[in-house]
């Protein structure tokens, strides 16, 4: 038995979701990780704890609160609807918002670790060699943190591909729009379509394994998640 069109649609949604989420997380997570790695603010640990929350929180809890907030009757969703927009609940946008929050620690923590490992010295050297702060960031910090970026991107992507609880709560499992692979697998099992579940599960297993192999092979000296 080969995958159906619905399964392929779920694969496309999943990959699109993971790619979008990873892109947004790298964009948002890089300055955040940089700040967390460099700041001496006394209450920095509060923010670090918030970033790490998705690591310990049941995904359904996160999904539930997102649904409450983003839904048509929630503060954010309601505001959007009253402005003539649409509540992001049960849309692809909603999935992206949920995934960004859910996968945040998997991107921010490797980046923070990589930035922290650079230390102050190379940046001070760059400063005495006429590099402005932004210049120093791009010409010294980013290249030296390259293993961290690779780890962050792959973990963020893989973790988004694998999420279930959050997308179930906020996505609504609409085929072609918000149905992702992990939920499609669940549906197949529920319907006792083990053959199709095998196809998808095996595919995901292989994909995840290949991605992790890539990270570990390229970053032999770099631990994957640093807390």
């Amino acid at each position: 038995m080969t995958p159906s069109d619905a399964d392929l649609a779920a694969l496309v949604v999943t990959l699109r979701l993971a790619a979008t989420t990873t892109f947004i997380l790298l964009l948002l997570g890089t300055p955040l990780a940089w700040w967390l790695a460099r700041s001496r603010w006394r209450f920095k640990f509060l923010l670090e704890a918030v970033v790490a929350l998705p690591l310990v929180l049941p995904p359904t809890v996160l999904g539930f609160y997102l649904l409450v907030t983003l839904g048509p009757n929630g503060p954010v969703g309601g505001l959007l609807e009253s402005l003539g927009g649409r509540s992001p609940a049960f849309t692809f946008t909603g999935l992206v918002i949920g995934s960004v929050i859910y996968s945040m620690p998997f991107v921010v923590q490797p980046l923070q670790g990589a930035f922290g490992a650079i230390g102050r010295r190379p940046l001070e050297v760059a400063a005495t060699l006429r590099a402005s702060p932004l210049d120093r960031f791009f010409s010294v910090a980013v290249p030296l943190a390259r293993p961290g970026f690779l780890t962050a991107a792959v973990l963020g992507f893989a973790h988004t591909v694998g999420e279930f609880g959050v997308v179930l709560m906020i996505g609504g499992n609409i085929p072609g729009s918000t149905q992702v692979l992990s939920i499609a697998i669940y549906d197949h099992v529920e319907a006792l379509e083990y053959g199709r579940a095998h196809w998808l599960s095996g595919g995901l297993l292989l994909l995840s394994f290949l991605m992790l192999i890539t990270v570990y092979a390229l970053n032999r000296r770099f631990s994957v998640v640093q807390t």
């Binding site: 050297v125 006429r130 402005s132």
Partner: peptide, 10 residues
């Protein structure tokens, strides 16, 4: 520092 005309050897 990056606008000061200096060289620094650590």
């Amino acid at each position: 520092p990056h606008r000061r005309s200096l060289g620094y050897v650590f």
